[in-house]
């Protein structure tokens, strides 16, 4: 019995070493601790009250944040999309933020956050880089963008958000509670 535990200990230590080495040599390797930036309810004060977002005003360079909480990706230099809460999503909605629905068109047509545009994850990632840039040209690079999908378990919004951030959009947010939480809260939806 004791021998088995020694074996297990040896295997675990061996695996830990190999895993850490393997991850550091892997070009797709990840950081050990996941530190997704989150804006809590308290931080919402950081947003200027008088600010009003215009997603279509491509000349605007107005900074919507008072305290800049964003983090830059160290390798690629884009601003990492931030997770936001339902209440902050609503506040930004009131300030005319651009909501992006990353679900399939059929889900989008069945119901979405009022005023949201549909950028389906599948279609979007299937496009070439040039097509994506062309598609997003009419939007303000410094405007507040909020990507969402169904809610909870869905992750297509993450992929769309990161892709937009890589394309040079500076204020991309991720609203993970998604459409379900929004609808349940009784906030504006359409149709």
């Amino acid at each position: 019995m004791r021998k088995i535990f020694i074996e297990i200990l040896l295997i675990l230590i061996f695996t830990l070493i190999i895993a850490l080495l393997g991850n550091s040599f892997n070009s797709k390797g990840i950081k050990l601790s996941s530190s997704q930036s989150r804006i809590s309810v308290e931080d919402e004060a950081a947003y200027k009250d008088e600010f009003r977002n215009d997603p279509y005003d491509t000349l605007s360079v107005q900074m919507p944040l008072l305290n800049d909480l964003r983090q830059k990706d160290k390798k690629e230099g884009f601003y990492i999309p931030q997770n936001i809460t339902l209440s902050l999503a609503k506040k930004l909605y009131d300030k005319n933020a651009l909501f992006i629905d990353a679900r399939k068109k059929i889900d989008f047509d069945a119901g979405h956050i009022k005023g949201a545009i549909n950028i389906s994850y599948d279609d979007f990632l299937a496009k070439t880089k040039e097509e994506r840039i062309e598609m997003m040209r009419k939007y303000n690079k410094n405007g507040i963008i909020i990507a969402y999908c169904e809610g909870g378990t869905c992750d297509v919004s993450i992929d769309v958000a990161y892709e937009l951030a890589r394309m040079g959009f500076n204020y991309v947010n991720l609203y993970r509670p998604g459409y379900i939480a929004w609808k349940n809260a009784g906030y504006p939806v359409e149709p």
Partner: peptide, 27 residues
């Protein structure tokens, strides 16, 4: 993140050990 790094290697190493017959019981 830690688990995402650790679990796959654990699967790989215990699987390999099991096949080659090293540390069979522990694996």
């Amino acid at each position: 993140n830690f688990l995402a790094i650790f679990i796959p290697y654990l699967e790989f190493i215990t699987g390999t050990f099991l096949i080659i017959g090293l540390f069979k019981k522990g694996s």
